[in-house]
Amino acid sequence: MIVKRKALSFWERLYLPAIIGGFKVTLRHFFKKKVTMQYPEEKWVVPEGYRGAPYLVKDQEGRTKCVSCQLCEFVCPPKAITITPPGPDSAPGVGNVEKAPKEFEINMLRCIFCGYCQEVCPEEAIFLMKDYSLTGTTRQEMIYGKDKLLALGGVHNDKIQKWKHK
């Protein structure tokens, strides 16, 4: 289909009004607050509910909340999570929580921060936190292990503590 270009009017052919209009906008912004952030010297404060990197948490008693159910591994769209279950010889941890992951790895190069792992977790053990800038010098460095994930995740003050009552 051919669209016929509309012929410009005389006023339009002068160009000057349009240029002046442009300068007006520019001038207005001179006196407004700056929006550019001087990253990385200046860091962005992310809002509540922001979905950054997923980390593991402990409860207030220091127990790794993850019980190695592997639902996050199952649901993870880019297959970034790899869990090594404890196997039969695992010492029963705290009370009736008989299971905890032997190893828990998230490949942050693969992770797409979708939040499925947090949503599927029946134990509230994994949360998407506010970290958005993950760097490393090797691929290996970008695979976060259990200890690193727990250290980054910190403590989750769990109101319910369901295993206490099992």
Binding site: F74, P85, P88
Partner: peptide, 12 residues
């Protein structure tokens, strides 16, 4: 089963 206990989730 002690042999299979906590080794793998069955859906995998």
């Amino acid at each position: 089963s002690k042999d299979f206990r906590f080794k793998m989730r069955v859906w995998f």
